[in-house]
Amino acid sequence: MSNEHGESANMVKLILKTTLWLSIITIVEIIAAVLLTDLFERNNMLIVLNSFYIIMSLAKAFFIVSVFMHLKFEVKFLAITILIPMTFLLFAVVALLAEGNSWLQMRNY
């Protein structure tokens, strides 16, 4: 940890830059949701838009975790121990979405 003034100022700059990015992404997402949903839906391209949201959300998550939560500046192995468990979730998401889809096929009455 350094108390050097320059480093501190740099950090503040990085924080503000990250804030800017987060805001831009959010604005873009909302604009897309409000203006483009109908267009994409009509052309059966909603999946493109949805993938866009997911990628953008992951980008936002990356910014929050790496800069705000400071993980970028921690020992790399710490980051690894935190991120590896998240891959289990990835598998669970895929499996459960597949399941949800099959429930749709099986719904009765």
Partner: peptide, 13 residues
């Protein structure tokens, strides 16, 4: 899910 093979789990899953 191997606890659920016969619970109506999707066969591919």
């Amino acid at each position: 899910a191997h606890h659920m093979f016969v619970t109506g789990l999707n066969p591919f899953v």
